[in-house]
Write a protein that binds this DNA or RNA. Structure first.
Lengths: 138, 138
DNA sequence: ATGGGACTCATACTAAAGTACTAAATTGTT
DNA sequence: AACAATTTAGTACTTTAGTATGAGTCCCAT
């Protein structure tokens, strides 16, 4: 958010500078007028594409946006989200433990907490709810 | 691709038209010069956003209907597909048994067969593969 | 009518999953 | 530094999931 404001401020300053240049340096000449127009067009075309890319998919690979708002509402921690994602990939507790370099006991604790927070009885139900809540990719 | 070329051609024509207008109508006035610049900037910003949105929105693959072709390939029976769907809804074997009015043993048999046919070790992995194969709704 | 496929059910077993605690180390914030 | 939240890990236990095997019933097609 703050970054977006900064970028916009920079853009406005840049725009004003170009206007100034158009005024002082190329006041009487008409050829340069067109050049300024063209530059403005191209620059803003690029800016438009850039802005949209930033706003639409922040991370390149998962096109679908995860609902961070709901993750906070549910009180899911960072690690729990990680475990939840691995569950959705069909891994067992043991496999998740090996993948994340922790013990199986730890994963069991995480899973239990996830089930409580998602109000699910089983990990399969947790997957279903996580999909509905859009808190896991794909 | 062809559509993109057409759009670009239209844009170039539009740009040239604006140039012409800038030449004939607002030749001597400097105030309107800035106005034209501003319009160009806004228009191309919008165009940039629009173009990017078009290219990005094509990405999400429409899951649409279930792939009956693959179900046949995998050799999944009608009942097995039914059980698979219930698994994806997060139900336990017991719950599925009650829902389909059969014993839990029957469901266990079905699940085992499903796992073999989908080459999955767990029901969670079966869900993941079933999604990829598009043989379950949503 | 015979055979094959699908569906059903059972038993006995092993392997995961999940619960209910307790507790230490880590991390971030005030 | 003090505090809360997170992450880690353990034990002991219950429940669910999954495997292996065998067997009975039904329906459909050759």
């Amino acid at each position: 958010m703050t970054r977006a404001i900064l970028i916009f401020t920079a853009l406005i300053i840049f725009l004003l500078s170009v206007f100034k240049l158009g005024h002082y340096a190329y006041f009487s000449r008409n050829i340069s007028n067109e050049l300024v127009l063209a530059i403005i067009a191209v620059v803003f075309l690029v800016i438009g594409i850039y802005l949209n890319k930033k706003s639409l998919h922040k991370k390149p690979i998962p096109p679908k946006h995860i609902n961070t708002q709901r993750i906070i509402q549910l009180g899911l921690s960072k690690r729990e989200c990680e475990v939840l994602r691995e569950i959705s990939l069909g891994l067992s507790n043991k496999e998740i433990a090996e993948k994340l370099f922790v013990s199986e006991s730890t994963i069991k604790t995480h899973v239990s907490n996830i089930l409580v927070k998602l109000d699910a009885k089983r990990r399969t139900q947790a997957i279903k709810k996580a999909r509905e809540f859009q808190i896991i990719p794909l």
